[in-house]
Computed example of a mutant assay.
Amino acid sequence: MGALGDLLSLIGTPLYYAISAVLVGWHWLFTTIGMNPDGGMTWALSIIGLTLVIRALLIPLFVKQIKSSRNMQLLQPKVRALQEKYKHDREKLAAETMNLYKETGTNPFASCLPLIVQMPIFITLFHLLNEASRDSVPHGFLNADLAASFGSATLFGSIPLAGSFWDYGVWRPEGELSVMLLALFLVLAMTATTFFTQRQLMAKNMPADAMSGPYAQQQKMLLYILPVAFGVGGVAFPIGVLLYWTTSNLWTMGQQFYVIRNNPAPGTPAFTAKEKRDAAKAARHGHAPAVAAGDTQVVEAPRPAQRQQPKRQTREQRRKQGNQSSQASSADADNNNGGS
């Protein structure tokens, strides 16, 4: 463990300071406005605040993930064409597929970036809470007093933030039903939000031709594998960590809903729905509505031109105009007589 331990310490120490700084900052804010510094709700809200800060910092990665996922969807017809062309040459297929991704600036692994970046944060928070609850071990800006407060904090008077379904349901036969119920609720919430986030992406923001092939199969597998994996592992997570992960999932679901609604991929149900909303909005403001996909444009018959009404004239103007007309008629008659 010598070299490996040094490496983990080198990576973990900056994370301990960064995460504890945000956590302690939120705790100071809630304490300043009058909340109990040792209360479980104060620390729970601090964990939620930590989650919001981390997810806000990860927005650029999320945007990159969305762009990569969209490019992967739109490239599926070309990928299938390559698979058909080089179906007997796997090396050539792999090379041509990577060239296609490179030419279009698509990174097939970018969709995992937010999850990969969050895992060290998740593990660090787990150790902060776990060690604070067991031995009041300080890390980073979480000093000994704050670590003791964090480790012993309870929700609703008897539910420790450091408690888990596994600890209270397996290792303690007498158990505490309230701890198990809250932990189970958060595990189910974490599992459900993971499922619906992935389901939302597949149902609304994937073109019909991208619903088949290896990429679609991968997405379908993730749709069921990820929630099950988080659900099984979640029974061993402390309530404070489950609170972080559930809040993060809710952020992801809302953020993805906003992006899909306002900037959907072409050829998807979300894109069709946005076109219809834009057409309805244009019609409400009196503009010519754009024709949404699948709709038939109704062409109105042209209206007849309105007859221009003559301008009103005074009696003097009408008399002068009459005299001029009479003189013109006399001149025409004389010309005709002269010509005959």
Rank of each mutant, 00 (worst) to 15 (best):
A208T: 10
Q83S: 14
V24T: 07
V259C: 14
K311D: 06
P160Q: 11
T42Y: 03
P14V: 03
N323G: 03
G213F: 07
V235K: 04
F271H: 13
G267F: 02
A301L: 08
F122V: 05
D6A: 12
S152D: 03
G105C: 05
A56G: 03
Y101D: 15
R315Q: 09
A270G: 08
G5Q: 03
E316T: 06
L223T: 06
V137C: 02
G12D: 07
E91I: 07
G39Y: 04
T31N: 07
M119F: 14
N337W: 13
R90G: 15
N36G: 00
L10G: 08
Q306E: 13
L182C: 05
Y258H: 15
T194A: 04
A210F: 06
R284V: 03
A110C: 04
V241P: 00
V79S: 12
A273P: 00
T272A: 06
S248M: 08
L45V: 03
E275H: 00
A153F: 01
Q321Y: 14
Y17Q: 06
Q313D: 13
A147K: 01
A110M: 05
L7H: 14
A189G: 04
S111T: 02
T272F: 13
T191V: 05
K67W: 09
V298C: 06
Y215K: 00
G40V: 04
V170W: 12
V259H: 13
R70L: 09
R312W: 13
D89Y: 12
P264H: 06
S152A: 10
G49L: 04
A282E: 13
I159A: 04
R134L: 11
L10D: 04
G2K: 14
